[in-house]
Simulated assay, not measured.
Amino acid sequence: MARILLVEDNSANTKLALLLLHKVGHEVQCAVDAETGVALARADKPDLILMDIQLPGMDGLSATALLKEDPDTAHIPVIALTAMAMKADKEKSELAGCDGYIAKPLRYPALYAIIDAQLAKSYGRSR
């Protein structure tokens, strides 16, 4: 399965995401802030990033923009995770470079579907 970087500062959300991701065999690395997430993404080049939008310090959209501007990480799909499920928030995530968007609380069918779709696109480009 895939190597996923989860950038999430809420421990309950992290536990739920880890449970759902491990259940289907994904390997997960976690970061609790955007700065750590960007550093891990650059160092480890995960297959996909789940990025919380509201993070302490740098927000998830700024972190996504940094990753998408970097040729070494621009190819990594980033899925925005947010409790803000308004149309404008989705548009902001797209402008920052997010490849997908999912509202919290996480619902496993939607989470699995967006991960599978992004990984299929990513693997299709690299093969």
Results as ranks from 00 to 15, higher is better:
residue 29 Q to H: 13
residue 70 D to V: 14
residue 55 L to E: 01
residue 68 K to D: 11
residue 126 S to E: 14
residue 76 I to Y: 01
residue 33 D to K: 11
residue 61 L to S: 01
residue 56 P to A: 01
residue 19 L to D: 10
residue 114 I to T: 15
residue 45 K to N: 07
residue 94 E to C: 09
residue 126 S to G: 11
residue 79 I to Q: 00
residue 30 C to D: 02
residue 84 M to L: 13
residue 10 N to H: 11
residue 52 D to W: 10
residue 120 A to H: 12
residue 95 L to M: 10
residue 27 E to S: 14
residue 104 K to A: 02
residue 37 G to Q: 06
residue 23 K to G: 06
residue 55 L to D: 00
residue 6 L to T: 08
residue 99 D to K: 03
residue 95 L to K: 11
residue 73 T to C: 04
residue 84 M to C: 12
residue 71 P to W: 05
residue 108 Y to F: 13
residue 53 I to A: 01
residue 74 A to Q: 12
residue 41 A to K: 00
residue 42 R to E: 09
residue 20 L to H: 05
residue 61 L to F: 03
residue 2 A to Q: 07
residue 91 E to Y: 05
residue 51 M to D: 03
residue 43 A to C: 10
residue 113 A to T: 15
residue 100 G to Q: 06
residue 102 I to S: 01
residue 96 A to I: 09
residue 127 R to Q: 11
residue 16 L to P: 09
residue 121 K to S: 06
residue 62 S to W: 06
residue 108 Y to G: 07
residue 80 A to G: 04
residue 111 L to C: 06
residue 71 P to N: 01
residue 122 S to D: 04
residue 78 V to L: 02
residue 11 S to Y: 15
residue 15 K to T: 13
residue 85 A to V: 14
residue 101 Y to W: 06
residue 44 D to Y: 15
residue 120 A to N: 03
residue 14 T to P: 15
residue 126 S to V: 15
residue 86 M to I: 13
residue 17 A to C: 05
residue 123 Y to G: 09
residue 127 R to A: 07
residue 18 L to H: 07
residue 58 M to S: 02
residue 82 T to W: 03
residue 72 D to H: 11
residue 97 G to V: 09
residue 49 I to K: 00
residue 56 P to G: 04
residue 124 G to D: 10
residue 65 A to N: 03
residue 19 L to C: 12
residue 27 E to W: 15
residue 63 A to R: 03
residue 79 I to M: 00
residue 113 A to S: 12
residue 68 K to M: 07
residue 115 I to T: 11
residue 48 L to S: 01
residue 37 G to N: 06
residue 36 T to N: 08
residue 42 R to D: 09
residue 98 C to T: 05
residue 10 N to Y: 11
residue 95 L to Y: 07
residue 12 A to L: 15
residue 103 A to M: 00
residue 29 Q to E: 13
residue 110 A to D: 03
residue 57 G to N: 04
residue 70 D to K: 02
residue 34 A to K: 01
residue 76 I to Q: 00
residue 119 L to C: 02
residue 127 R to Y: 14
residue 4 I to N: 00
residue 106 L to S: 01
residue 108 Y to W: 14
residue 30 C to K: 09
residue 55 L to R: 02
residue 10 N to I: 14
residue 12 A to E: 04
residue 27 E to M: 12
residue 54 Q to I: 08
residue 72 D to V: 13
residue 60 G to V: 07
residue 15 K to F: 13
